[in-house]
């Protein structure tokens, strides 16, 4: 049933396939982020409670929600790599981790610069902020565990186990605002009486999707480099290295 997939599990094929996707994904991500950000910054109505400071939402919410999605993506890749011993999945997980860590960092910093004018403080130790910080630590743990093994096959497995164990944190972040009384705003409602007006919601959704596409593009760029680094002994990589590397 899955036979048609097998040729793509070959490193060289995956490398070429990723190379075909990257330009399209990058163009799409750039267009979406430009549209969403300009729409949000210039054309969205000012919030009647928060004034113009709410415009941070157009980078904060996409980063926060995609930091979780990227973690889930990494954990799924790690799981596939562990269970079916597919090296490409291991490399994918290792490529997502640094991208996810930076996105989590962005979510934390933008949240903090939004918190200062709204709550009067850069940081509060409430459930959502703390668990997002834990998410950053988990990303950093996965990255440094992967880096500390000489043998990268073992490194990927060890980091994969850690990534899967850390998935428990994701529902805690997602529902922390609904479970605990928190200073943090509730989750955004798409429908109903308290729904966001479409002029705010549409650019926000565009930016969320744009962040997702951008993470995919960056992960694929790293994924290609990872394939090369892990296959340094293969003839096709050596040819490529001698064609491009010696300058």
């Amino acid at each position: 049933m899955w036979k048609w997939l097998h040729p793509y599990a070959e490193p060289q094929r995956a490398y070429q396939l990723a190379g075909k996707f990257i330009p399209w994904l990058s163009i799409l991500a750039t267009l979406m982020l430009l549209t969403g950000t300009i729409w949000g910054m210039v054309f969205s109505p000012t919030d009647y409670q928060q004034g113009d400071s709410y415009r941070i939402i157009f980078v904060h919410v996409p980063a926060a929600s995609m930091s979780m999605s990227a973690y889930i993506g990494m954990a799924i890749a790690a799981f596939i790599g562990l269970v079916w011993q597919i090296k490409l999945a291991d490399w994918m997980a290792a490529s997502i981790a640094p991208v996810g860590a930076v996105i989590t960092f962005i979510a934390l910093v933008t949240g903090s610069t939004w918190g200062k004018p709204m709550w009067g403080t850069w940081w509060v130790w409430d459930a959502r902020l703390t668990s997002e910080l834990v998410l950053l630590f988990l990303y950093l743990g996965v990255i440094s565990l992967y880096a500390s093994f000489e043998d990268k096959v073992l490194a990927a497995r060890a980091a994969g186990i850690l990534a899967i164990v850390g998935v428990i944190n994701i529902p805690i972040i997602k529902y922390s605002v609904d479970w605990w009384n928190s200073l943090h705003q509730g989750s955004i409602k798409m429908t109903g009486k308290t729904a966001m007006p479409p002029d705010m919601l549409v650019p926000l959704v565009i930016n969320i999707l744009g962040f997702g596409v951008m993470i995919a593009a960056l992960s694929l760029v790293r994924f290609r480099a990872e394939i090369l680094a892990r296959n340094g002994m293969r003839p096709w990589v050596r040819e490529l290295a001698q064609a491009e590397g010696v300058k």
Binding site: V134, G141, S144, L145, S148, F149, L154, I161, N169
Partner: peptide, 23 residues
Amino acid sequence: IGVALTVGLRKGGVLLSLLILPL
């Protein structure tokens, strides 16, 4: 779990705290 992951490493000590304390 963290100890089992780092037992084969020579310098696992600091890494261990980074892995375990968030959990």
